[in-house]
Nucleic acid binder design. Structure first.
Lengths: 340, 340
DNA sequence: GAAACTTACGAAAACCCTTTCGAAAAGGTA
DNA sequence: TACCTTTTCGAAAGGGTTTTCGTAAGTTTC
């Protein structure tokens, strides 16, 4: 590792002294500001380079009143949905020379409060709160002196701005695709019914079926978001309703289980039975046999959007309020349409 | 969202003025320092609370010479291995009131350099560099004015301190477990042979076999780290060497594919054929049929360790140098040992 | 040769907090 | 009353940068 006792980073006065000019002249030379002769400018630049001078962002921020930092307050890094959102946000910020403070509250309200306080003490210019489910979460309150945007999990206070994927539209989209594939006897296997995501997707699905004058075959089956449950549920379902021609699954994991059971029971996918998943978890979807059609929530895009809203808010632009449902996307693979 | 035009965060002078004392007295009252009467202290405290005053960490850092921040420079957030490391580090730092700057270089050297510069300009007290493979990566150099620790991907400069999982030991561990299970005819299916991880695991496996006077059955099979390849490779392998009694797989994805093919070809796992994976990717391992025995690299622990080293270095403790190989762990599930 | 500009640079304030040191006030003792 | 000690508080410096404004020198115009 690097020498800890090494010389501390060069400061502007170091550069100025070395160049034989005043601090203010050095500052102006480096920032293309004010009246500085070309010769002086070049000299200061050269010396700054030589000392590998980097302006102290803290000192700068102290003056400017903004720090060029944003807090990313996640409730749980483990979650699969965090990462794309985080990537999208980091990406959008990175382009604008803003740095991100990452805080993981681990689903604990106390820790969240503590992290919030730290972020405020660091004078972040804005905060993105990322939740792990699409169920509403407690608002951080209206008393926060910087703009806040909620991503994935919306705030329970309608005065906050929240961006969340449109699960209802996702449910519709899945069913409309199955209908377009000529399927009519469609069942639904999903995860934990306590999740808003499960209910919203189901509602969207029912709406689309209703418009076609159809209904789900059997009652929707709820339990866990796991492959195991997908297998068990599919086995039951295919025994109880052997005549179904499609299954809309609440997650890709469940869909993988369904594919497995279908195979075991001698059903051919997609000819005999179409299967559609949800989340478009690439590693699961593309490695399935056949590859899995799925609904993609565009999470990276969601992260980007959240970052852009914070940007705007920092610039004083009004970014509105309420929960915004962002569009989702159908990704078609072999589990609903036979390969040519 | 919150009112952007809202009052800016309260400053210490606001508190002092409101309490009718000088700035210095207010500071001392809030920090339990110097001589301040109990009454004054209480009053200042109350007003600070009322204005929800939070000291400006920048101003404080400017003075103290350290910022209480650490940079986490990842090469690729997408990677599955990043997240646990990141969690471990974030966790260790969070406990010590240090905040983390997250930077994703997206595998691009230019962007990495740019982020590095930003981190230095923010005067981070230390940096953790997280790579996406266990292959050595270019050092950031010795000229950096703060301590640097490399996690997962070691630096190619032995003067740097690197923490990386011990893939060699992992390979040994896997084989020793299979041998302990009474297996003797063991084959190996792995991913991209250009990865150091693939080679190290193989070397460890061969060493363990050699000590038992055995050899791998057939040549090790290399291609991709995917389920598809696992399926294809297993099909070939079982045709060519029907007498094998165990497969050591280079990843859990490959192992899932192997399980799939074994099932298709009528082999019973684990009685007829034992399968062991690598990475202990929970969602894959616990949803397999049967559940998958695997090697866990303790990545979260690795992240913690990296953070602790940076801590020590900040405190001026010498943290050494060179690449340290951290122990891995065997997680036994149903794919190598029949359920009771 | 003086007045009116232009150009190039430096001094100093401002940002917010912590810390040191000195001063004032209060209380006690001879 | 004079002197000393203890307690409580405030003034000021320092940290690194940007920005405003003033000043000195150099250049042009009548």
């Amino acid at each position: 590792m690097t020498d800890t006792t090494g010389p501390r980073a060069a400061t502007l006065s170091d550069v100025a002294a070395r160049a034989g000019v005043s601090i203010s002249t050095a500052s102006k030379a480096l920032n293309d500001r004010g009246d500085v002769s070309a010769a002086t400018r070049a000299k200061v630049r050269a010396i700054a380079e030589e000392l590998s001078f980097t302006p102290n962002a803290m000192a700068r921020g102290l003056l400017a009143g903004r720090t060029g930092t944003v807090g990313l307050l996640t409730s749980d890094l483990e979650g699969r949905f965090m990462i794309p959102i985080l990537m999208g946000a980091e990406d959008a910020f990175g382009a604008g020379r803003i740095n991100v403070f990452l805080c993981d509250a681990r689903g604990d309200a106390i820790r969240e409060q503590h992290h919030l306080k730290e972020l405020l003490s660091r004078r972040v210019d804005g905060i993105i709160v990322v939740g792990r489910q699409t169920d509403p979460r407690p608002s951080l309150g209206q008393e926060i002196p910087v703009p806040v945007v909620y991503a994935y999990a919306p705030s329970d206070d309608s005065r906050d701005l929240s961006l969340t994927p449109d699960n209802y539209a996702g449910g519709r989209l899945a069913i409309e695709h199955l209908l377009a594939c000529g399927r009519r006897r469609i069942a639904h296997i999903s995860g934990d019914p306590a999740y808003a995501a499960a209910q919203d997707r189901l509602a969207g699905a029912r709406a689309a079926l209703g418009e076609a004058g159809l209904e789900l075959v059997g009652e929707p089956m709820f339990s866990e978001w796991t492959e195991h449950w997908g297998r068990d549920a599919a086995a039951m379902l295919l025994q109880r309703h052997p005549d179904i021609d499609a299954v809309f699954c609440g997650s890709d994991q469940i869909a993988r289980g369904v594919l497995d059971s279908a195979r075991d029971l001698g059903r051919t996918v997609p000819d005999d039975l179409a299967v559609i998943g949800y989340d478009n978890w690439e590693v699961l979807a593309t490695n399935a046999r056949p590859e899995l059609t799925s609904i993609d929530a565009n999470l990276q895009q969601l992260g980007r959007q959240a970052a852009l809203r914070v940007f705007d808010a920092i610039d004083g632009i009004d970014i509105g309020e309420g929960a915004h449902h962002l569009p989702v996307r159908l990704v078609i693979r072999g589990s609903t349409i036979p390969r040519r």
